[in-house]
Design a protein around this nucleic acid. Structure first.
Length: 391
DNA sequence: TCTGGGGTCCTAGGACCC
DNA sequence: TCTGGGGTCCTAGGACCC
């Protein structure tokens, strides 16, 4: 189940005067950034997601350009997901605008999947004014391709017997998981269609594309589930990562501006750790220079990070290894990997008494913020520097 | 003409251990 | 002069998706 042109559709639902207009949600013209989502009216001008906003503006200067209101989209998404969750015993939210329902063996209980999908579309429209596209297939991968094929406001079922033929009719780049690089590589080895993949002996495909990629392609091209994202495993991942990054409005080589951004990003991550009751022992830094070359560096601490100050300190050490102090910097990011539930690290914390003080301060700040949402409380160093202007 | 931000998964090489 | 095999952990980068 896919929400159509999600962010743009939410804006249109919230402001009826935008219906029928080219709505482009993302960066605002004149600033650095890309299109996050756009209405179908905007697509008629050639505007697409992920396109630089300057390019979109040239194609469609008459469009309505709106900033991303993520909180609102999450709120609407929650309403939709609650509706979908009630429809089937096995529900999985994939992203803010996407979910999968497993209807295997439910026909006797829930009725025909197509009717169920139609009723889902009706319920979502009545509750939110939004349209969804529903693809039904013999596995999740095919259902995904099907929903892509029928959007917007679509409903399409492809049965097992028709799966291979359906996939064979798609251009290579419409296979989920096959992007620009893979298409280029496939062309290099003489493959220009899904049928070419099916026709190639698997051993040859594996040797040309590598085992992982080759196996993925062999399954996908036949309409079989290639097994991405652990389709069969209901268990939630025990570890993941969180990060924050920001592009400067203008590239900068000012070390103090960069340091303050690192500190701010680290502070935001520390706040998330506390709010989400998780922790991490691995800090990462991302650096993008003016020519777009991008470095990442990370360090495992062997224990849990204890404060935003500490995250920033490690990130700065990583930065110093990567930046010569002169080259203009475009983007800085700070991240945490191996994020796990907070109780997993309690042992380590007990041994790190000297670090718990700053952690306690940050936890107190987080509690204050929870009670008083708009409380402008932050580190003094993040308050006073007027150079800290960024996107 | 420029190219966001937040993620996931995979690969490959080096260090280190038995 | 020639230096195995298997395993784990860590790091960096790449591809892809929403």
């Amino acid at each position: 189940v896919d929400l159509d042109a999600f962010y743009a559709s939410v804006e249109q639902a919230d402001r009826p005067e935008l219906h029928g207009k080219a709505v482009i949600v993302g960066a605002l013209p004149g600033h650095r950034g890309v299109v996050s989502a756009c209405s179908y009216e905007a697509r008629a001008y050639g505007v697409r997601s992920a396109m630089p906003i300057s390019h979109a503006y040239r194609l469609c200067p008459s469009g309505v350009y709106l900033p991303v209101r993520m909180h609102r989209y999450i709120e609407v998404s929650g309403t939709v997901m609650d509706i979908l969750r009630d429809l089937a015993p096995v529900f999985r939210q994939i992203s803010v605008d996407e979910a999968a329902l497993d209807l295997t063996g439910t026909e006797r209980l829930l009725g025909d999947p197509v009717e169920l999908a139609a009723s889902a579309k009706k319920k979502v429209r009545e509750a939110t004014g939004l349209t969804i596209s529903v693809g039904i297939g013999p596995n999740r991968y095919l259902a995904k391709l099907t929903s892509e094929r029928c959007k917007p406001d679509g409903l399409l079922r492809v049965r097992e017997a028709d799966a291979a033929a359906f996939v064979a009719g798609l251009p290579l780049d419409r296979l989920w998981g096959v992007g620009e690089k893979t298409v280029t590589r496939l062309h290099e080895v003489g493959i220009s269609s899904v049928r070419d993949i099916v026709a190639m002996p698997e051993a040859r495909l594996f040797s040309l594309m590598g085992k992982g990629c080759g196996s993925f392609l062999a399954h996908a091209a036949r309409g079989q589930d290639p097994g991405i994202h652990g389709v069969a495993s209901p268990a939630e991942p025990s570890s993941h990562s969180i990060s924050g990054e920001s592009t400067f409005e203008r590239d900068t080589a000012d070390a103090e501006v960069i340091r303050l951004l690192v500190l701010e990003l680290a502070q935001e991550l520390a706040g998330r750790l506390i709010r989400e009751r998780v922790t991490s022992g691995t800090v990462s830094l991302k650096l993008r220079l003016d020519d777009f070359t991008t470095y990442t560096a990370r360090r495992s601490l062997g224990r849990a990070v204890t404060s935003g100050g500490e995250i920033a300190e490690v990130a700065m050490q990583l930065l110093k290894r990567r930046w010569d102090g002169r080259t203009p910097v475009r983007l800085v990011g700070v991240g945490l990997a191996d994020v796990t539930p907070a109780d997993a690290w309690v042992q380590g914390e007990l041994l790190e008494d000297s670090r718990t003080k700053s952690r306690k301060v940050e936890e107190a700040v987080a509690r204050l913020r929870q009670r008083h949402e708009d409380l402008p409380i932050t580190r003094a160093s993040l308050l006073r520097d007027p150079r800290r202007r960024r996107v």
